[in-house]
Every structure is written in C-alpha cells, then in structure tokens.
Amino acid sequence: MSQAGFDNQKQSDIAIPIWVKSILVIGIGLFLSQLIGFPSILSDSIEKNRAETAFANGNYPEAIENYEKLLTSYPKDKNLIKNLGLSFYKQGLYYQALRTFEKLEGKEIPKSDVKVIEEAIENMLKQF
C-alpha cells in the first residue's frame, strides 16, 4: 500500500534492508540453479505436448513414439504409462497394451483412469 502526503519528515530515500535484498538473492539463486535443467525439461514438455496432441487427434503411432521416448526419462510417470497403454490399445496392439498396463499394478491411480483402463482390458480380453 502506498500513502501519499507526508511532508513533515523529508527524506530523499530509505535504503533497502539486507533481509529484503536477501529474498531477491535467494529467488535469483534458486532461479539460476533450476535454469541448468531447463532445456531438457522444455524439450520433454514439448514432446509430451506433441504426444498428447497426437493422442487426441487419433494419431496413435506418433503418440506411441513420443510416449516411449518420454518413458525412458520418466519411467515411473503413471500418466505417461496409462496414455502409452491406451495408445497401444487404440492402435490394436493388445499385447503391448497389456504389458504396459501391467506396470501400473499396485500403483495408486485416479478412479477415472482405473475405469478407462479396466474398460480397455475388458475389450481386449473379449478379442482374444
């Protein structure tokens, strides 16, 4: 908040205290330290975005390619595993889909995802 109209105590300026400067210094330090890994996380995010776009557009071969690349860097990412499994399923690659969904066994995943995966597995088992 700024309050105007204090004429009685004329002072040209007030120095910025060290503790205020240190908040900025800590922020800049953290920012610079995180900047080191930024190029790789940016390229991974671009890859993920491409994979999601391909999946949404029904371009499953491209989605599979991108999700597989991402899973080499993030092998425990449940969302990537789920989407890769669904891409295999949509592409008709049931064996690979089942092998992918197996990786989610024992892991906590949202109920909505469980439902989608269960439906896919049911459909695949009917085909066998």
Partner: peptide, 30 residues
C-alpha cells in the same frame, strides 16, 4: 519504493512486512 525512487518522490517510511492490516506500506510525499 522503487517507483518512488524512479520519480524522485521522497519517502518518509517503509514497512515491508508486519502482522496487521495492511501487512505493509510505503509513506511518501505527494
């Protein structure tokens, strides 16, 4: 505070943080 400095407006008091309302303030000349 920095905008006051930029426009050469004298400042009489700066409270960067306190427990109260407002949590901070800058008193400056018109």
């Amino acid at each position: 505070q920095l905008f006051c400095r930029a426009f050469k407006v004298p400042i009489s008091e700066v409270c960067y943080f306190r427990f109260g309302n407002p949590a901070g303030y800058v008193s400056h000349e018109k």
